[in-house]
């Protein structure tokens, strides 16, 4: 068996060693600092993101939109269809809705009540005599 020429192998190995060109050195240098810069930007972005999130959470806690002081149930804010909306709305007493929409001004409430009332159907429940009496009273008022 031939002896493997280790010395020859070492020589070949040494002769085939690769050397970095100045351009490649510059590429390595540039690449590293580019990555470093990217990392710094990512850290900054993360810091800004976390700060913003903290501020938003703080504002939400301060405003407390779901607090128990609100008369309308918080579930009302999470209806998904128009049908659901009206079903939810029906469950809330009328005076509460008026209070939420119009506030406490008595004239505004009265106007809304009159506007929302079905006068025709209310009159139809009266007898002929009562209707006549009502008309006479209105004529006197005018």
């Amino acid at each position: 068996m031939n002896e493997f020429d280790e010395k020859k192998f070492d020589e070949i190995w040494e002769s085939t060693m690769s050397v970095l060109t100045p351009r490649e050195m510059e590429k390595i240098r540039g690449g590293i600092w580019h990555k470093v810069e990217k990392h710094r930007k990512a850290l900054k972005f993360r810091a800004v993101f976390v700060t913003t999130a903290i501020i938003i959470i703080a504002v939400i806690i301060a405003i407390d939109p779901f607090s128990s002081g609100n008369n309308i149930d918080q579930n009302d804010f999470f209806v998904f269809s128009e049908k659901d909306y009206w079903q939810q709305l029906e469950k809330i007493p009328e005076d509460e809705i008026i209070y939420e929409v119009i506030d406490t001004d008595i004239d505004s409430i009265a106007n809304v009540m009159i506007y929302e009332s079905d006068i025709e159907s209310a009159i139809s429940t009266l007898s002929n005599d009562e209707q006549e009496e009502l008309l006479v009273a209105l004529a006197d008022e005018i």
Binding site: S18, I28, G31
Partner: peptide, 13 residues
């Protein structure tokens, strides 16, 4: 060479 350069960059980074 390109793979080797990538490794050098990443290792130093």
């Amino acid at each position: 060479r390109d793979d080797a350069l990538d490794v050098v960059q990443e290792a130093f980074y």
